[in-house]
Nucleic acid binder design. Sequence first.
DNA 1: TATGTCCTTATGTAGGACATATTATCCGAA
DNA 2: TTCGGATAATATGTCCTACATAAGGACATA
Lengths: 229, 229
Amino acid sequence: MTTTDLQPLPGGTLSDAVEHRIVDWLRQQGLKPGDPLPGELELAQTLQVSRNVVREALSRLRMIGLVRSRKRAGMHLGEPDIPGTLARVLDAAFLDQARIAQLRELRLVIEIGLAPLVFTRHSAADRAELTELVTQERAVADDCDASRAIDAHFHAVLYRIGDNPMITEFQALLPSFFATADRAAFRPTRFNDPAIVSHADLIHELEHGTAVSFAAAMQGHLTPHLAGC
Amino acid sequence: MTTTDLQPLPGGTLSDAVEHRIVDWLRQQGLKPGDPLPGELELAQTLQVSRNVVREALSRLRMIGLVRSRKRAGMHLGEPDIPGTLARVLDAAFLDQARIAQLRELRLVIEIGLAPLVFTRHSAADRAELTELVTQERAVADDCDASRAIDAHFHAVLYRIGDNPMITEFQALLPSFFATADRAAFRPTRFNDPAIVSHADLIHELEHGTAVSFAAAMQGHLTPHLAGC
DNA sequence: TATGTCCTTATGTAGGACATATTATCCGAA
DNA sequence: TTCGGATAATATGTCCTACATAAGGACATA
């Protein structure tokens, strides 16, 4: 007798509808992180649904960080938890091969596109750090696992130099997508092969090249990993 | 007397703990999209929490598409809804200026890094489509709004040519971040300025250049938008 | 002023009840 | 036998009530 008078909400549950209603309302009110929200009971009464439905909707908003709540203080808007949400939805265990391939390609795209920023924002100290890693890499050229770890470290430093927190956070959750599949694809650098852009070549471009030439070098360094190139 | 014997779950609610427990269990069991899940009641009994708590946790997993449920069929694993989840967490209305700046920069990074893929995967028909857009652009050079719309369309086509659904989906939800701020930053192309890489120049590189030269052109086309360059 | 107690409040959790949709089952008719 | 419709079973969706818990405020006291 309570729910019979409203439309069947085609294709969704009440929680779905309430979730969107609340978010739309927050947007419409122009609320910002830190602002207080109405209590659960008031929301339930206003929306004419049970407190349970409201809590299921709020639980979702809590997960993505949009809402924070404490026992007596009530609820407040929070800052969306981008890395936490990405980690939940980009879970290699539940993604199909197509999605994983797209993610791996996205990683390469970002790393190539990051090159101009890395060139612009890097310092002499950064170059020294990268050079040190190349030295270590040469020392363990025989050990595939160690070589691979240093390779990952080298690229992580490039991300850090890029100095975009969002991109760095994205990179931080990528290893799970490369843990198994990339082991086979990873080839220890042949240091004397002129056709391959090595880490040392990248550092050279960083010091003596331009933003464009460094980006081209990065492209050459990563292109072997791109399908259809 | 029921909840007093378990640890205060430092820093989180029961729903948080149950959410992670369930996801860990799904991973550990190696379940894949389509596989059935235990019922809510069974989960509640196994985890020794109320069905309410279980439903709040499941509501979150339903939001990100990880579980789907129908009335009598029970629950099944679903494919994570990446674009839907991104749309929820990347909401310009609730992100601070720093995050928005990072997102705008990420867009430029992706667009530059996408260049090699665009070059490799484009067809003559794609070039014709882009050329047609440049023609239209010249026709409305005076109208800033129309010019801006065609510019957006041009870049959307580039994304489509890149042929990575994940990247295209990401691009699809970007307009909200550029709707207001970019209006000021947008400058209609001065077609005769040789220092600026125009859309026509991009098409020229696409037809007569190389992957590297096209990427460099894209870099030149977008660099004016990058801070600190 | 400082502090400790009590009270209020809003969220967190529990449990039961019913509604609803969908599937399985069974029975009767052609 | 087979087909089709009525019927029962089942898991999710929604509602309700009650209580636990933490946190902030009010107040009295030293």
